[in-house]
């Protein structure tokens, strides 16, 4: 058979493409549930972390997430965890950072007296400066922080504000603008959560 002839070339190209694509579809199909579960677990882990629930491993995450109820009010989706008191509410957010969007989850108590926690899901801030919003010390500042005058104040740069009653957190040294943007995000999100829950800030 002449391997350089037109019919062979077309036939070969068609056949080889068919073969490879068939195999790829098969691979995609068999792993799809797993990929979907990974995505779900990643999202659940962030929400749980903001709600202050410590987890490790996919099974434990899914187990713990059964306690969390998804509710929708005023077109805003919140995740509620019952704590025996006012409940804790987490909201996913996308805000604008310096270079691109900052995605994360912010959790507050049901009476909006305190924040419960913060988790950053995705961001493209300057690595080593604004990118430090993903570091533990920064997020830890919002663990059970009292909300004063309906907002969280981002104060002068520092190494982390451990006072939980003053309603303010330290900005990141050298990343003034990212810190400012985080302040704006907190303000907007608190207002949204307040309107969804029908609670005065």
């Amino acid at each position: 058979m002449n391997k350089q002839s037109l019919p062979y070339t077309i036939g070969f190209t068609f056949f080889i493409s068919f073969l490879f694509v068939l195999f790829l579809s098969f691979a995609h199909h068999t792993t799809a549930p797993r990929v979907e579960r990974n995505r779900e677990v990643t999202r659940q882990r962030s929400i749980l972390s903001a709600l202050g629930v410590e987890t490790s491993g996919p099974d434990q995450i899914q187990e713990a997430f059964r306690e969390v109820k998804e509710i929708e009010r005023e077109g805003i989706t919140l995740f509620r965890l019952d704590d025996g008191e006012t409940g804790v509410y987490a909201k996913e957010f996308i805000g604008s950072g310096v270079w691109g969007p900052i995605e994360g989850v912010l959790a507050v108590t049901g009476d909006l007296a305190r924040t419960r926690g913060l988790e950053i899901v995705d961001q493209t801030e300057t690595p080593g400066l604004g990118g430090r919003i993903t570091e533990g010390w920064f997020k830890e500042q919002l663990r059970d922080l009292r909300i004063v005058e309906g907002t969280i104040r981002v104060a002068a740069p520092g190494e982390g504000d451990t006072d939980k009653e003053n309603g303010k957190i330290d900005a990141i040294t050298g990343a003034t603008r990212t810190s400012e943007r985080m302040g704006v995000i907190f303000k907007n999100e608190l207002e949204r959560i307040a309107s969804a829950l029908g609670v005065e800030l």
């Binding site: 790829l24 995609h28 792993t31």
Partner: peptide, 13 residues
């Protein structure tokens, strides 16, 4: 390459 991508997505998210 797509095989590698699929494997990573599924097993090393």
């Amino acid at each position: 390459v797509i095989i590698v991508d699929i494997l990573l997505r599924a097993y090393l998210p």
